[in-house]
Simulated scan of single mutants.
Amino acid sequence: MDARLETDRMTLRRFTGADVDDLAALHGHPDVMRHIDDGRPVARAVVEQQTLPRFLREYRELPGGHGCFAAAEKGSGAFLGWFSLRPATSVGLDGGTELGYRLLPSAWGRGYATEGARALMSRAFTDLGAERIVATTMTVNAASRRVMEKAGLSLVRIFFEEWPEYIEGAEHGDVEYAITREAWTGTRNTPTTRNAIRNRNGQ
């Protein structure tokens, strides 16, 4: 299966060793990491020695079509961040295919996150045999929750886990969002969606 994926405005591809600078800038940005892991920027050495090698290893070890994919803007080629599909392993999740995304602040508020999320969901359901897609974030991460909702996922629950270190807002817990193949197929077959497709195609 072709690991490359294109949306209207982005190209998604596998990471390579040459992407270390872009990935380090993303994971090292304090605003990006505010609601992730321990809430602190990740050192370049960690990205270079652990994060990127893990991404590359996952292409071999995970089922085909899964992993973390670098997102670049069409035309300019500017690095925007990444999107991922993996068997769900994040704390609090129990099964399903996990959707993830992490974008530079320069890409926030421009619809890129929703665009990429929808593209990976479509691939997961149509090509990869996914039955249920899940995603999680902190309850207070309103921006990420909006992306999940715009992509078509629905709130399943708020849950509370013990974390090694406190992050501001952790007392409000985390959220799980999800969508099943059946629900996703149903949204694509509504009259409104069909009309939108016909209009987009000029029919």
Rank of each mutant, 00 (worst) to 15 (best):
L56S: 10
G75V: 15
D94C: 01
R146C: 14
G28W: 04
L120C: 06
L104K: 03
E149V: 15
V20K: 01
G39A: 13
L120W: 04
N141C: 13
F79C: 11
A24W: 04
M33A: 09
M121N: 03
L128V: 07
G75M: 09
S144E: 10
G152H: 03
R145F: 10
E58H: 12
R145D: 12
E58F: 02
G152M: 09
S144D: 08
P41T: 10
G111Q: 12
Q50L: 11
M148T: 12
R44L: 10
D38T: 15
R54P: 01
R146S: 15
G111C: 13
R118E: 08
V46L: 11
E73N: 06
S122L: 09
L56E: 09
P105L: 09
R44C: 08
G100M: 10
V147A: 02
L103E: 09
K150D: 06
Q50I: 11
S106C: 05
L120V: 10
W82K: 02
R132A: 13
G28I: 12
F125D: 00
F83H: 10
D22K: 06
A151F: 04
E149W: 00
I36C: 13
R146W: 02
V147G: 01
F79R: 03
A142Q: 05
A78Q: 14
A117K: 04
C68P: 00
G67N: 04
H66N: 07
T136I: 11
P41V: 13
A113E: 02
H29W: 00
W108G: 01
A117F: 11
L26P: 01
L153C: 09
D127A: 15
R145M: 10
T89N: 01
A142H: 02
E149M: 08
I36R: 06
A130I: 12
H35A: 13
S122R: 14
A71H: 04
E115Q: 05
S106R: 14
W108I: 04
R57F: 03
G81R: 02
A135Y: 05
T137C: 15
S106A: 15
